[in-house]
Nucleic acid binder design. Structure first.
Lengths: 156, 156
DNA sequence: GGTTATTGGTTGATGCGTCAACTCAAAGCT
DNA sequence: AGCTTTGAGTTGACGCATCAACCAATAACC
C-alpha cells in the first residue's frame, strides 16, 4: 500500500533493489578474482592487510576482527587456516594471557604483496574507476551513514 | 585509467573501505532479522517475493535466479528447500521440457506476506530512512553504475 | 583470599554457497 | 533419420560462516 510506512515508495524500492543487487554481486566479483589469482578470500585478504599495516605487523584478535568486519569466531577459524599455510602466527600477550596477538610472517607478507596489485586493480575496475570523484565522495558519506546505524560505536 | 594504476589514493581508499565494510555488514543485519523473525534468508525472501509478483505467481528458474541475483545452482538448492517447506512447487514447462517453472503456493504466499513488514521495516531502519532523498537518488545511480560493470547485459 | 563474574578466544556441529560433473530435452547438421 | 551440440536445470562434494557451547585468564567483590 503506497504511502504507508510499512511499504516502500517506488523510488525507495528501486534504490533498495539496486543496492541489494550490489550486495549480492560485488562480493562475488572480488572473491572470484582473489580466489583465482591468489587463493585468498576477500576476508583473508583484509586480515593479512590489517596485520601488514599494523605496528610490529601484529594485532590482537578482537581488533583485527573489527578491522576486517567479521566476528571473532570467523576470524579465529580463518587465522587458524592462515597459520596452517604459514602466513600468520599466534601467541598470547605477555601482560594479559587472555589476549591473542596475531602476526603476519615474512612469507605471509610476501604473499600479500604479490596479491595486492590484482586486488587493487579489481577494486579500481569495478568501483573506483567507474565512479566520478563526486560519486566517490557521495558513496563514502552514504556508506558511513548506513554503517553508523548498522554498527554504532565503530568509527563515528 | 585515472590515478596510479597500482594503488588507491587516500580518498579512494577511504571510500572503498567504507563500501567494503558495508558489503560485509549490511547483509548480516538483513539476514539476521529475517532469520530470527521468519526463518528466511534474504535470498529466500527475494525468491518468494519474485514469485509472488509474477504473473500466475510463477516464474522459470533462470529468470528467478536473475531476479534474486544468484546462480542457477544456488537457486536450485534453495527452491528445493522451499519446496520441502511447502512454499513453492516446481514443474517442467509444457512447451519446453528443459524449462522448469516454479510457483509459490498459497501457504508460501501467506508466509511471505507475514514476513514482509518486518523485512521492509529493517530496510527502512538501516537504509531508506537514514538517507536523504537526494542520497537515495545518488545511491541508485552509483549502484547501477557499478552493477553495469559487474553484470553487463542485465538491467539497463 | 576465595568465590563469582566478565572478558577474550577457541572449537564443533550444522547449514548454506560454489564448483564441477551430470542428466535430460531441444535444435542443428548431413 | 542419426549424431552432435547447446541450453536448462539438478546434484554431490567440499569449503566456509554461524551459532552456541565451551575454556582460560583476569577482574570484582565481599
Amino acid at each position: 500500500m503506497p504511502g504507508d510506512a510499512q511499504w516502500l515508495e517506488r523510488e525507495e524500492l528501486a534504490t533498495w533493489m539496486s543496492l541489494a543487487a550490489l550486495l549480492f554481486k560485488l562480493p562475488g566479483v572480488l572473491d572470484y578474482q582473489l580466489q583465482r589469482d591468489s587463493g585468498l578470500t576477500h576476508f583473508e585478504y583484509l586480515v593479512l592487510a590489517g596485520l601488514s599495516e599494523s605496528p610490529g605487523r601484529s594485532r590482537r584478535m578482537s581488533d583485527l576482527a573489527g578491522f576486517a568486519n567479521g566476528s571473532l569466531s570467523r576470524l579465529s577459524h580463518v587465522v587458524k587456516r592462515l597459520e596452517q599455510r604459514g602466513f600468520v602466527e599466534r601467541r598470547p600477550a605477555e601482560d594479559d594471557g587472555r589476549i591473542t596477538v596475531a602476526t603476519i610472517t615474512d612469507s605471509g607478507y610476501e604473499f600479500l604483496v604479490a596479491a595486492a596489485p590484482g586486488h587493487v586493480a579489481t577494486v579500481r575496475e569495478y568501483v573506483v574507476d567507474v565512479l566520478s570523484p563526486e560519486q566517490l565522495a557521495q558513496l563514502k558519506d552514504i556508506a558511513d551513514t548506513i554503517l553508523a546505524k548498522v554498527d554504532p560505536g565503530k568509527d563515528c
